[in-house]
């Protein structure tokens, strides 16, 4: 067990060289690589943490924006709904007003047509009745309608003689007006005038008013008193009957409308 000191020195030198070489080719590069990798990992971790923080911040921002948009959308929707409701009410009111106006116009037009129809019917009925009665009397009794009406009117005047006399006593200088729808024969005029002067007094003037617009018959108007002998009562009954028949379908139409 001897120690070769030359070998010892050589081995010390060899070991020193080996330390330097390994430091140069092993420890240095490996430790630098480890440090660099750790630094890179740390940088990535920091970057990831920063990215996570950015992502969280952006998420919060987008969430806030989304909430704001939701609120805005809800408010806009509510405003639109209110506006639509107002518009609907306005249009409803307008349409109802237009419908009411049209219905009123239509009803007025219908009433006017009905009145015109009834008026024309009344006239035609008067003419027809007069023509038929006149012809029947002429053919079957050899009588004139106007004569019979005038004769009957005279008897009616006598029936109301007391009332007419009272009216004549309360009046002064008034004219007794006899309205007819047809021309009276002169003879009948004179008889009526004579009868009236007998009832009312000799000084009372008598005037005959003949017009197609007058009621069919004879009507005396004097000092607020009126004595009439016409077919208006029949015509009123006929008109009432026809008007009743006309109103029935009209009411149904109105209900349907």
């Amino acid at each position: 067990m001897a120690i070769d000191w030359i070998t010892v020195v050589a081995q010390i030198v060899n070991f020193a060289i080996l330390v330097w070489l390994l430091k140069r080719f092993l420890y240095g590069p490996i430790l630098r690589a480890i440090d660099a990798r750790e630094a890179e990992i740390q940088a990535r971790m920091t970057e990831a943490a920063q990215a996570r923080a950015d992502a969280a911040r952006q998420e919060a921002e987008y969430r806030a924006k989304s909430d704001a948009l939701d609120h805005e959308r809800a408010a806009a929707l509510e405003a639109i709904q209110d506006e639509a409701a107002d518009l609907r009410r306005e249009m409803d009111t307008k349409v109802r007003a237009e419908a009411d106006a049209e219905r009123a116009a239509w009803s007025g037009q219908l009433q006017a047509e009905r009145r015109a129809f009834l008026s024309e019917l009344r006239g035609r009925a008067v003419q027809g009745v007069a023509r038929l009665t006149r012809k029947a009397l002429a053919d079957m009794a050899d009588e004139a309608l106007e004569d019979r009406l005038a004769a009957k009117f005279e008897s009616e005047l006598r029936a109301f003689a007391s009332d007419l006399a009272t009216a004549a006593s309360d009046s002064a200088g008034e004219t007794a007006v006899v309205a007819t729808a047809f021309d009276l024969p002169q003879k009948r005029r004179e008889e009526i005038e004579k009868t009236l002067q007998h009832i009312l007094g000799e000084g009372v003037p008598v005037r005959f008013d003949t017009s197609q617009d007058n009621a069919f018959g004879l009507v005396l108007t004097f000092a607020g008193v009126q004595v009439a002998w016409t077919i208006d009562a029949y015509l009123d009954e006929l008109e009432s009957d026809i008007e009743g028949r006309l109103k029935a379908p009209t009411n149904r139409t109105e209900r349907a409308a």
Binding site: Q11, L21, L22, F25, A33, R37, E40
Partner: peptide
């Protein structure tokens, strides 16, 4: 000893010569 040194140094050099992090 040189053989061992050669193994260590050459091996380390071969592995770490193109070392990048």
């Amino acid at each position: 000893t040189w053989v061992v040194m050669a193994v260590l140094v050459v091996g380390s050099w071969l592995i770490t010569r193109k070392l990048e992090a």
